[in-house]
Design a protein around this nucleic acid. Structure first.
Lengths: 202, 202
DNA sequence: AAAGAGCCTTGACTTTTGTCAAGTAAAGGA
DNA sequence: TCCTTTACTTGACAAAAGTCAAGGCTCTTT
């Protein structure tokens, strides 16, 4: 495969999303590619386990992942989902090199593009566009998180669920219901009843 | 007042926090100062009203502010507090120039340092350290927000309140209880009862 | 000093959501 | 293919938080 073709096909989605935020020259893309790490994950495999140091930010080229915590009673709390085009990490652990408080695993077989910490530092030092990319990425994540929090504070279970399925129809279809319940701060039973009530009404 | 003295006293806290994130030379500080806008706000005055375009990020030198929404039933939902050393804005409106969904007002007489959008753009273009500052600022805000969300999803009212007063003892003392209740997604009555129960136990 | 507004508390009651337990269906591994 | 595990549902009951209403306290403002 020649280099131009590989440029067009490898990390395709990653660079598409990057270019939407910050346009890159082909040279810059090659420069970045040299530091990226591809990784495949089988369903149920961990990308990160609580207590480990989070060594990379993961961009999802294909598949689906989730970040979650496990509390004293062994209850899982889903913090975040990520499917194609999205990014997932334990940012706090990644940036501070403290042990992770999240687990991250694959809900489907997945192909990832990893930005390791050394790549991250390399880019921040030598490629101003990368800092812009990261800034915009985190800004978007911050705004989305603020919306999620607001909806959790002010809406009932059914309204939250409706809003979730409208905002993320693809995730709602691909992910087990009990994880969506957890993501919204509900028990599986409650979500099941909410859905039944909605179905009974139509 | 000579220039060096004024440098040391004006916007003091703003530059202290900035330097903690990204060290600046005196020249850079002067360059930034030239674009900053000071603003005083009396208690109850608005910095931003829902529907307006958010024109600045506000750093709090003195006083206390809150961001909040008002729903159909005229219930207020507190999104964020900011006291000395913290920053507050409707980031979505600021960045997209869409109408704000938040109100921001002063809970105490306040002194602010405003970064207007034109200053923001000027800095991003000509001062790489500013982009780093903003990136670190938002990253910190993102991580804090994720913690808040997690605690809302997995903790009971009393645990959330305890965690809040431990994390932000200063805010807990300066801000009316019903706003703290709202910040945690509780009614004033519920928070009042939670506090009574805690007091009765000791 | 009086009037009003805002804030906090308390009680009685309702609604929402969680817990526990059981059962069925579907998916995945040996 | 069978067998185990996992996911989802449903019912009965419990706990948490919300609603409505009233009263008292404190702070402004006049």
């Amino acid at each position: 495969m020649d280099r131009l073709l590989s440029l067009a096909t490898m990390y395709e989605l990653f660079f598409q999303k990057f270019n939407e935020k910050v346009p890159l020259t082909p040279e810059e893309q090659e420069q970045i590619k040299a530091y990226l790490t591809p990784k495949k994950l089988r369903k149920r495999q961990y990308l990160l386990q609580e207590g480990d140091i989070c060594k990379s930010i993961a961009f999802v080229e294909k598949g689906a992942l989730r970040a979650y915590t496990v509390d004293e009673n062994m209850n899982e709390h889903v913090i975040q989902f990520a499917i194609e085009g999205w990014t997932i990490s334990d940012l706090f652990s990644y940036l501070t090199a403290e042990p992770a408080t999240y687990n991250i695993d694959a809900l489907e077989d997945a192909e990832l593009v990893l930005i390791t910490r050394s790549a991250h530092e390399e880019f921040l030092k030598n490629l101003p566009k990368y800092e812009t990319y990261i800034r915009l990425l985190i800004t978007g994540a911050y705004i989305a998180l603020q919306r999620r929090l607001t909806s959790n504070l002010s809406l009932l279970a059914e309204e939250r669920y409706t809003s979730f399925t409208e905002t993320y129809p693809d995730i709602a279809q691909r992910v087990p219901q009990h994880m969506i319940a957890s993501y919204m701060g509900l028990t599986p039973e409650t979500l099941s009843r909410v859905r039944k009530k909605m179905a009974d009404r139509r």
